[in-house]
Amino acid sequence: MRASAAQRHDRLLDLVREHGTVRLSDLAERLTVSAVTVRRDVEALAEQGLLDRAHGSVSWPERHALPQQPPDGGGLVLGMLAPSATYYFAEVIRGASEAAARAGARLVLRISDYRPAEDRARTEGLLEAGAQGLLIAPGWRGPDDPAEHGGWITELPVPAVLLERRPAPGSALEELDRVSSDHRHGVLLAVRHLVGLGHGTPLLVARADSPTALAVRSGYGEALGALGLRAPAPVIDSVPAEQDPEGFEAAAQALRAAVESGKATAALVHNDVDAIQMVQRLAELGLRVPQDLALIAYDDEVAALAGTPLTAVAPPKRHVGRHATELLIERLTGGAAQSADEPRRHVTLLPRLNVRASCGAGDGNPSA
């Protein structure tokens, strides 16, 4: 089966991270794609600040370097399952790696590529590699995935902490330690900020292909209820432009129609990449940000790099990785009796709103 662009980008970044500097011709050979495809992928990733380009080669940015891990045989071994090593989860992994290094522990990483059916096998690989405790961010996408692909997590033979995942109330997974961002609060920050600037109720343009996307959608309804607002129109379904150009165009046209009809003057868009591409497409359709539409992105990975820097909700990704690792290490080093008596913890960290130019409020200091 041919890998998607997102999967190919993850593999490309893994190769560069592993080797430091890689020739483009070697990348094309390893990824079994054409030189043109590799150059296009590298250009896209370099624009996001994830790689440094040189003539004929590409390097891992020094600013993204992870802390030096202790050598094999020393300290605890922690396993980490993540759905991706790029975009959102790159910062989560970085926070976990930093916390592990400070504790003298070794972090071993496995990537599931958002294939929840493979999570269990990847985790078994971590256990075979000697992991004494696990940090688990399952590759769930839809609302049914936790029930279908999550039961095995409660049967693990070592302590585990869920990352950026909030199981359904009453499920067995609720008994696990977890650390996650409060995306509902993040959406509330965005809606309240736009309304405070004098806009009517903002529209939501969002994906539905990840736990974060689903939390943003549910948080939108809760935010409107908390602020006594009513949605000006249904949520606009967004999709990645490169995977579904027609679906993305439909979302852009729906947002354009809402603005031109006077139904909305503001919008929250999940995620950053979609928001940047949406602004570009709206400009082609004659709508300007922020003059015609105030816009806030969700994730704050690359929002500041847009032509008009985007105000964005920034989940505390790095802190999620750090707090989860510290919690896991505490479980592993606190003693059997203490671990048995200690109640499980659900740690929820609040996002912040980084205000820039796209909502018409200038590019002042971040606000929370």
Rank of each mutant, 00 (worst) to 15 (best):
G133Q: 03
E118C: 09
M80Q: 12
H64Q: 15
R23W: 09
R141A: 09
T21F: 12
Y114M: 11
H64A: 15
L51V: 12
I93Q: 10
P61W: 08
G151E: 10
G79F: 04
A44V: 07
V42Q: 07
Q48E: 14
G75C: 12
R39D: 07
D144M: 10
P146N: 04
G95E: 04
I111M: 07
V38D: 01
E29N: 09
E29Q: 14
G95H: 02
L24D: 06
V42S: 00
A28F: 04
H149S: 12
E47Y: 02
G125D: 07
A105D: 04
S34Y: 00
A54P: 01
L126N: 03
G139F: 02
L76S: 06
G49T: 10
P61A: 05
P146I: 05
A35S: 14
L76C: 02
G20N: 00
Q69M: 12
A82V: 14
R110F: 00
V36W: 08
E118Q: 14
H64K: 12
G75Y: 04
G56P: 00
W60G: 08
A100P: 07
R53E: 15
E29G: 11
W60C: 03
V38L: 02
A101S: 15
Y87Q: 14
E148Y: 13
G125F: 05
L66D: 02
G125Q: 04
R53H: 06
V92I: 15
A137S: 06
A35N: 11
R40W: 06
A90H: 10
E128K: 03
T86P: 00
E29T: 14
P143G: 01
S57D: 13
H64T: 00
G49I: 09
L66M: 09
A35W: 00
S34G: 14
S25F: 11
E47A: 14
P61L: 08
L45H: 00
G139P: 05
L27W: 05
H64W: 13
A96E: 05
R63F: 07
D41E: 10
A103G: 10
